[in-house]
Nucleic acid binder design. Structure first.
Length: 300
DNA sequence: CATAGATCCTGTATGC
DNA sequence: TGCATACAGGATCTAT
């Protein structure tokens, strides 16, 4: 569930602490946490130790730490991380008790706190990956290059997004969750942006007008920025910043998780339906379903 | 190629 | 109390 705002909160917390530090010790406590590192845990640890963290970057829900290698001095690789559903990156004092689901530990030359990857459900993971040039002269890990820029990226192309969305015959919610169209959007912010747009998630994307798609994008940006200001969304102790603290955007949600509660706009109880093996929350009055928009395709 | 559905994983909440 | 079941859901894999 950590989506873009939650991952950005983590990125900022990490950036303040780890940039410029050298990794002196790496330890993998659960092999599944580094399954995306094809060469295995031993290679992961061996290549990580001795490197210096040059930055903390993010695209969508992916984080990466470009690494300056000890011997060469150049920055060719990055430590790539994805939190999956329950991953946490915590800065903990050395010697503090290991978390139940501690998967990877990194310690630094400066002592003090260590970086811990904790992940209950093990959908997340860490890997080392080569940096390649992206489409605008920047650098990005190979394993992240396949996803689109996210809506908070200054180089995000709104018109290209609208064209991409309107080429698809899938339901608009499914398209919002497709990380190759725009990255960073997950179930919570998809439902919130659709609610703000008064759009039912089941509407076919290719029957929405360009202006409706651009307005939806604006709502995606708004809800993400508002969540960021409040430290992200947390429903329980799983979604926390690097100090283990929860954000409180959950208090501002209009639709997601609000089944049975009144729609803040019209008072109709919010409804929950199954969708893609998860849930969609929407107002059945404000967000009209596809059949009310018939074959006329008036949104063109 | 686009699209849709299954799958991975573990802790918590709920019902009988 | 114990047991079974549903649920949380991002990314990836497989099937059509």
């Amino acid at each position: 569930m950590p989506e873009l705002p939650e991952v950005e909160v983590v990125r900022r917390g990490l950036a303040r602490w780890v940039v410029g530090r050298r990794i002196t010790h790496a330890e993998v406590l659960h092999p599944r946490a580094v399954r995306r590192h094809a060469a295995g845990a031993g290679d992961f640890v061996g290549r990580l130790e001795g490197t210096q963290i040059a930055a903390v970057s993010r695209r969508g829900k992916y984080l990466w730490l470009p690494l300056r290698s000890d011997d060469v001095g150049s920055i060719d690789d990055a430590l790539v991380g994805h939190l999956g559903m329950s991953g946490q990156l915590l800065l903990q004092p050395q010697g503090s008790p290991d978390e139940t689901h501690l998967r990877v530990r990194l310690a630094f030359d400066t002592g003090g706190r260590e970086l811990r990857f904790v992940d209950q459900r093990t959908f997340g993971g860490l890997a080392l990956d080569a940096l390649v040039e992206d489409d605008s002269g920047g650098r990005i890990p190979t394993s992240v290059a396949h996803i689109a820029r996210d809506p908070l990226d200054p180089l995000f192309d709104d018109d290209a997004f609208a064209r991409s969305v309107r080429r698809r015959s899938s339901e608009i919610k499914r398209v919002l969750l497709d990380q190759t169209v725009a990255s960073g959007i997950g179930n919570i912010y998809a439902d919130e942006a659709l609610w703000r747009s008064r759009l039912h998630g089941g509407r076919p994307a290719d029957r929405l007008s360009r202006l409706v798609v651009l307005a939806l994008l604006g709502h995606v940006r708004d809800v993400m920025n508002e969540a960021l200001e409040q430290g992200g969304t947390s429903f329980d102790a799983l979604y926390v910043n690097v100090n283990g603290e929860s954000g409180y955007f959950d208090r501002s949600l209009s639709a997601y998780g609000q089944e049975g509660l009144p729609c803040p706009r019209c008072g109709t109880p919010i409804r929950r339906i199954a969708f893609m093996n998860r849930s969609s929350y929407f107002c059945p009055v404000c967000q009209r379903s596809a059949r009310h928009h018939g074959a006329a395709a008036q949104d063109r």
